[in-house]
Amino acid sequence: MKDWIAITRFDDVPRQGSRVVELAHNDKLNRIAVFRTISDEVFAVLDKCPHRGGPLSEGIVHGGRVTCPLHSWKIDLATGEAVLPDKGCVRAYATKVEDGQIYLRLA
């Protein structure tokens, strides 16, 4: 699965906010959080904190990071890695924006 999938309009994701994408693929439902930062960069990670599975999409977005609403782990959105001293990693997905449309790639 190497194709770019159109997700949503760029304008439909609030700045410093997120949207949740429920992506059904091969009978599997992926819950993916798509973020837009203060500088209008777009990132996507699995909507599941590596700590206790909290919904990252509900966190506060600051710089290129999100803070998980359950126990305040900070996740770097570009890599999916937890910010030290916490250790862990959530899957990050490639994204691109073309003509105001956000695309995401599963693999």
Binding site: I7, T8, R19, V20, V21, E22, L23, R31, V34, L106
Partner: peptide, 11 residues
């Protein structure tokens, strides 16, 4: 409204 609406896609 979009705060509460997930985007549903089948790929």
């Amino acid at each position: 409204a979009r705060e509460f609406q997930p985007i549903r896609i089948t790929a």
